[in-house]
Computed example of a mutant assay.
Amino acid sequence: MNEPIYFTEEHRQFRDNLRRFIEQEVVPHAAPWEEAGMVPRAVMRQMGELGYLGIRYPETYGGSSLDTVYSAILAEELGRSTYGGYAVTVTVHTDMASPHLANFGTPEQLQRYLPSLIRGDTVCAVAVTEPDAGSDVAGIRTRAVRDGDHWVLDGSKMFITNGVHGDLYFVGAKTDLTAKGSRGISIFIVEKGTPGFRVGRALKKSGWLCSDTAELVFDNCRIPATNLLGGENKGFYQIMRNFQNERMVIGAQAMGEAARAIEMTVDYVRERKAFGATLWDKQAIRQRLAMRAAQVEAGRALVYHAAWLDAQGKDCVKEVSMVKALCGELVNKVLYDCQQFHGGFGYMHETTIARMVRDARVEAIGGGATEVMLEEVAKRM
């Protein structure tokens, strides 16, 4: 795949070092993680030591003060690992959960939590989704009531990545019970072990198997008033602001997966013989792969364009929504064809391509379903 026009030598070095780390420290060891249902904490600490968990955070707290293009590189290379569960474990920590703290935390909150998140000593999750409130954030029912110097949380969250083995949670709750729709939502910092907070159950998924996913329960969970993050009743705007980052990295991850799947499939069909010739000799197969490669190049270009716009401080809601809709659907089309061209081997549970098919499906759902994203685009046409 070609390099985006935005790449500098620093971008290339970052990508090459990250790819080398993933090829040496992740891919050879990740199969047991699928069975365990989690990414080892030691791997997160390794990534923290190498600077991959604090790419865009201030150097004051141990970060690198880089821009959104680097986040896109991180997500794309994680996707190329072929382990979607590993990829999302990292990107939830770096680009979906911790930005809530980085963007809206008080100096005291930042000093208390951010260095540990950047080192990988603490792993975080964002807990907004509920059984009846996914893409429709306004449907949140978890509530928080002020009681002196504390807030009391009651409710539940569903499909929370890093929910089982995480340490720190950014929780959305209704704080103005009279407000309608998206108004009256606030975000709270909740530490694991807080009385009244528990993991209801670990959830079994079709894919992303080495990513732990949980139902969370809050039952008279008392947290200090100082754990309010970003201001009372301001949570919806905080969530919407970070959605752009979340959706961009999902698109980048999807294109990393798609590009790697095409590479693997080209290698396979060049070797696999049928009817006296390799599959690559079949015009229909090589032309389908050529078309998919062209589409992935276009998707990657859109990803990096959106990342560049964000890095320039420009409004990119339309472009990011396009990224999420296009790339979430495209990766599934690519993986469908790649599995098809692997034949019966591609349907075996233990093969890389079969795992990638399972992992890719959710990328048209999580972070904003395709239909929701297309409505966001349509509003701005």
Score class of each variant (00 low, 15 high):
residue 270 R to C: 09
residue 220 N to I: 00
residue 196 G to V: 00
residue 310 D to N: 13
residue 302 L to Q: 12
residue 249 V to M: 01
residue 218 F to D: 00
residue 287 Q to G: 02
residue 280 W to L: 07
residue 224 P to V: 08
residue 258 A to L: 05
residue 208 W to F: 12
residue 263 E to H: 14
residue 291 M to L: 08
residue 203 L to I: 12
residue 259 A to R: 09
residue 195 P to Q: 06
residue 282 K to E: 09
residue 206 S to E: 11
residue 288 R to H: 13
residue 236 F to G: 01
residue 269 V to A: 08
residue 236 F to P: 00
residue 206 S to D: 10
residue 278 T to E: 01
residue 264 M to E: 11
residue 308 W to C: 07
residue 267 D to A: 14
residue 257 E to T: 14
residue 196 G to L: 01
residue 258 A to W: 11
residue 248 M to S: 03
residue 218 F to M: 00
residue 287 Q to Y: 14
residue 301 A to S: 15
residue 284 A to H: 12
residue 267 D to P: 04
residue 304 Y to N: 05
residue 277 A to P: 00
residue 285 I to N: 04
residue 292 R to P: 00
residue 269 V to T: 08
residue 287 Q to T: 13
residue 250 I to M: 13
residue 303 V to G: 12
residue 220 N to V: 03
residue 255 M to W: 12
residue 284 A to R: 06
residue 278 T to L: 02
residue 295 Q to Y: 15
residue 295 Q to H: 15
residue 278 T to C: 03
residue 230 G to F: 08
residue 284 A to V: 11
residue 271 E to R: 11
residue 274 A to E: 05
residue 194 T to I: 07
residue 197 F to K: 04
residue 301 A to R: 15
residue 248 M to G: 00
residue 237 Y to N: 01
residue 206 S to R: 12
residue 280 W to C: 03
residue 252 A to T: 02
residue 256 G to R: 12
residue 274 A to H: 02
residue 217 V to M: 13
residue 293 A to R: 09
residue 263 E to L: 10
residue 262 I to G: 09
residue 241 R to N: 04
residue 208 W to T: 09
residue 203 L to F: 05
residue 269 V to G: 09
residue 229 L to C: 03
residue 291 M to N: 07
residue 195 P to D: 06
residue 300 R to I: 09
residue 211 S to C: 15
residue 285 I to F: 11
residue 237 Y to I: 01
residue 224 P to G: 12
residue 290 A to C: 09
residue 290 A to V: 02
residue 239 I to K: 02
residue 199 V to L: 07
residue 305 H to C: 01
residue 284 A to Y: 12
residue 300 R to L: 13
residue 285 I to Y: 12
residue 282 K to Q: 07
residue 271 E to K: 10
residue 298 A to W: 14
residue 268 Y to E: 10
residue 201 R to P: 00
residue 247 R to N: 11
residue 228 L to M: 05
residue 238 Q to Y: 02
residue 242 N to A: 03
residue 237 Y to P: 00
residue 219 D to G: 02
residue 310 D to A: 13
residue 242 N to I: 04
